[in-house]
Design a protein around this nucleic acid. Structure first.
Lengths: 243, 243
DNA sequence: GGCCTTGTTATGCAAGTGTATAAATATTCT
DNA sequence: AGAATATTTATACACTTGCATAACAAGGCC
């Protein structure tokens, strides 16, 4: 008696996107185990069989979802760079800051990341997807640091640059995890402050206006600090390498 | 015609331990999805039904396994402290160093950690287990930093201490992840070096002998640096707080 | 040794899993 | 409008999952 379910034909790209999104939501809420074809289909508003029509197997849907989340994260951090295109130090600060605030800091995104990466160790396909996204992020950091060092007139031996990139990437990752897992333990901008301060310590120079107390409260739109490109050359304490 | 399988009765504690260990191995190799009761039992050398005899449900076995791994990790990092009980700075350095070398840096352990924590966001029982272990680790860091600061004659306002603990914990976490995920990208002691160096930068003081180039190559047993308790007060560059 | 306790195995079951296939209908093309 | 196409639904199937229960045997006790 109940007739067949009504439906609409959506474009291929749209459906793929919807299915990927539904997958990520299921993963975030119930882990990889909860991302069954039926649960995904239900959330995407279709029936389970349709998944096989767009993805050869569930495995490939998961890979696509993982690639999507990795791309989204680096893209969000990079987006902060587009808005602040002037001074290298400011760019680096903006990058760190953007990485340590919503929407990059997000419990759901973290849950997805952890779920996937937990399996990336055993699944070769996910492993390569991970390594690509990861190195992309670190290269971004390294490029930013190189800009900063040359702009401040410091020579940058490749080995030292590498160490900076590794360390800065690490502290961003670590703070990101802390923020995602226990965001309620921190003041809204606390992690960003700590992150930028730590990077300043490591590089031995100031990234922001030296007299700005904790950065002005964000009242306008966007995640940007004030747009004035004025900088002091700042304290610029000499990095102590083995003398 | 094959008669019933022969078996031995093991003590309760032993069996629980074996089952937990088997669970962790399954998780490390095939993710949480691969940790089925049958796979666990097979690896533990028993049949599936026995699991229910020791754990009310599979859920509780997983919780026990998660608690086990968390405890093991902090225990390993703390073990480094027991060996170096003298000078606070050296203790902190040893703690950082131990956290960034095998066996704490281990791809399998990371896989387990990620798998569990991915679900900790959705599963309340795992969430509390996580938060406990996590705060325990951070408190450990905070206590170490406090020791160092008082030993070097610096006042330690609570807020600043907190920031240090957060930042240092973050860089340990971040480097730990990098090491576990891409250990082949780094020299054996590179991460430990970077970690200690970064902490030195953040605290604005030296933790090791200032003239030791990269720490002597470990030839003896244990993960310890030389046991001489001699320290220079070192550079001790003044931390630049907002003046 | 024979019994009793209980750790352990073996078997079964209902629910859920991914996938394959056929039927149906929305949309396009002429 | 009507036929063609391929998106979408619906159903089925083999398999796995966690869990329950009954049969069994290993080791301790008298």
């Amino acid at each position: 008696m109940e007739g067949r379910r009504k439906f609409r034909r959506e474009g291929e790209e749209r459906r793929r996107q919807d299915l990927i999104e539904a997958t990520l939501e299921c993963v975030a809420e119930r882990g990889l185990q909860g991302a069954t074809v039926r649960a995904i289909a239900l959330r995407a508003g279709v029936t389970a069989g349709l998944i096989r029509h767009y993805f050869p197997s569930k495995e490939e849907l998961l890979q696509a979802a993982y690639a999507a989340i990795m791309g989204r994260m680096t893209e969000q951090s990079k987006a902060a760079l587009a808005k602040v295109a002037q001074e290298p130090r400011r760019r680096l600060a903006a990058f760190v800051e953007a990485s340590l605030q919503p929407p990059v800091i997000d419990a759901r995104v973290f849950s997805q990341w952890a779920s996937f990466i937990g399996r990336a160790s055993s699944d070769p396909a996910l492993a390569v997807a991970h390594r690509a996204g990861y190195l992309g992020f670190r290269d971004e950091v390294e490029a930013l640091v190189a800009e900063v060092l040359t702009a401040t007139g410091r020579d940058a031996p490749k080995a030292e640059l590498r160490r900076y990139a590794i360390a800065i990437n690490a502290i961003i990752d670590g703070l990101w995890i802390e923020g995602c897992l226990a965001g309620d333990f921190f003041e809204p901008r606390e992690l960003a402050e700590i992150g930028i301060g730590s990077v300043e310590d490591m590089l031995g120079l100031k990234l922001r206006q030296p007299t700005a107390p904790p950065l002005p409260p964000l009242d306008g739109e966007g995640a940007g600090a004030p747009t004035s490109p004025v900088f002091d050359v700042a304290v610029q304490k000499q990095k102590k390498k083995t003398p």
